[in-house]
Write a protein that binds this DNA or RNA. Structure first.
Length: 382
RNA sequence: GGGUUGGAGGCAGAUACGGGUUGCUGCGCUUGUCUGUAAAACAAGUCCCUCGCGGGUCGUGGGUUCAAAUCCCACCCGGCCCA
């Protein structure tokens, strides 16, 4: 059973079009795809209808967070995550591996797994690879992720090697446990390797050897400069089988996504559109703007004149600024909505450009518009 | 009209009631940051003049003093009481 089908490819870059069939998605997911992040079972500030109305049919949840609250057994009793949160589309749960990175002060890693102190009440919890998969089985997402160790940036070669090799051993345990439980969920492996070429190559090869139905590149978007991130992708990608969906975890800015797609990445997730939405930053085709800025006080036009989303069609920049200054809930909602609409449109445009086989020129053009702040040399795309 | 009491940053509150370059907290305001969400968060800045060095500024104006936000006088503005 192959759940992923390639439907097109770019001739001047490694970008490709594909379809990913998932149990809870009524239609195949069109790739390259962006997945909004809904850590706690909600894409923050959005209703499920709004998220699906924007064209998203695959969203994230987080194992560690949902395990703590409301508890995976409760979710299981509710009939699974989809049913619990009343989401009609597909879902992916991250394993808690990222919390190994982000909760550095609250966890301790051993060969057997990671001991966490709950960030909510300080209580002790332990995630082994098996435990993470067990919890993800209870949550019931379409795609589940291997439990990995995500080393911070910067890390020494030795630190990265230790984390990467442990991630490999943990993956074999995840795969074995997953098989034993004969779950129909798709388990994706995660390649690490930090900012070291040899480790990236080694890790991508190892993860590929485990024959999971999809392969993720992890350990990026942990504070490294964008060019290092794209470099890590370029080292990993040649070793990841073409026929499998490739998921670049935690990425990213529109610029990152445009360039990673050119390297053959199919799936993305990132908190940026939602987090920036809550804190007053709008994505526009011509770069980011901070709507709280005083220059928008009397700007009665739309925030992004080129955007066709419901927010830009109806509300003015001055009004949105006003909502932020007053700390109104609607501010977070409207900006999140717009940013997600921006990402949805970006991905649709990316897919179109690949289908037209015009991807290199498309990327060049878009990067110009966004501003060249953190893009790699465009010649490297070809 | 008489009495009384008070007046330090954009606002509120506090603190300083003769001695060093006065200045605290909160809010507001300004700018910035955010990448598999410990985040509707966080950081920096925010009296005036000056590019800077530096100078000025404690309601206003006088006075006392070696020295005044601080003591005295007048005025301005506000609270309260009496008429």
């Amino acid at each position: 059973m192959t759940s992923f089908t390639l439907t097109g490819a770019s001739s001047d870059t490694d970008a490709r079009r594909g379809e990913l069939r998932l149990p809870h998605a009524s239609l195949p997911i069109q790739t390259p795809v962006f997945m909004p992040v809904g850590t706690l079972g909600t894409v923050k500030a959005m209703t499920q209808e709004e998220v699906s109305g924007l064209g998203f049919s695959l969203i994230l949840g987080n194992t560690y967070h949902l395990y703590l609250r409301p508890g995976h057994e409760l979710v299981r009793r509710a009939g699974g995550l989809h049913k619990f949160i009343a989401w009609d589309g597909a879902m992916l749960t991250d394993s808690g591996g990222f919390q190994v990175f982000s909760l550095q002060d609250l966890r301790k890693i051993t060969e057997n797994g990671a001991a966490f102190k709950s960030h909510i009440d300080g209580s002790q919890h332990f995630f082994s690879p098996e435990r993470s998969i067990e919890v993800q089985h209870a949550l019931g997402a379409d795609i589940i992720m291997a439990f990995d160790e995500c080393p911070p940036y910067p890390s020494t070669y030795e630190q990265t090697q230790t984390a990467t090799e442990r991630t490999h051993r943990w993956l074999t345990r995840c795969v074995a446990y997953h098989k034993e439980q004969s779950s129909a969920q798709l388990l994706f492996g995660i390649a690490q390797g930090g900012t070291y070429e040899s480790l990236r190559v080694e890790s991508a090869q190892f993860i590929a050897s485990q024959d999971t139905p999809g392969i993720a590149i992890g350990g990026v978007s942990v504070g490294e400069p964008p060019e290092k991130m794209l470099e890590a992708v370029s080292w990993s990608m040649p070793h990841i089988p073409k026929e499998k969906p490739r998921y670049l975890m935690g990425v990213g800015t529109p610029q990152d996504i445009l360039q990673a797609v050119a390297q053959g990445v199919d799936m993305f997730d990132c908190v940026l559109p939602t987090r920036l939405g809550r804190t007053g930053t709008f994505y526009t085709t011509r770069g980011r703007i901070n709507i709280k800025g005083s220059r928008y006080t009397e700007d009665f036009g739309p925030v992004d004149p080129d955007c066709a989303c419901a927010v830009c069609r109806r509300y003015s920049a001055a009004y949105l600024r006003h909502l932020y200054k007053c700390n109104e809930i609607l501010a977070s909602r409207l900006t999140t909505y717009h940013n997600l609409a921006h990402y949805a449109q970006l991905m649709a445009d990316i897919r179109d450009a690949i289908e037209r086989d015009d991807y290199a020129a498309f990327v060049k053009n878009r990067l110009e518009l966004y501003g060249r702040k953190n893009d790699m040399k465009i010649e490297e795309l070809a």
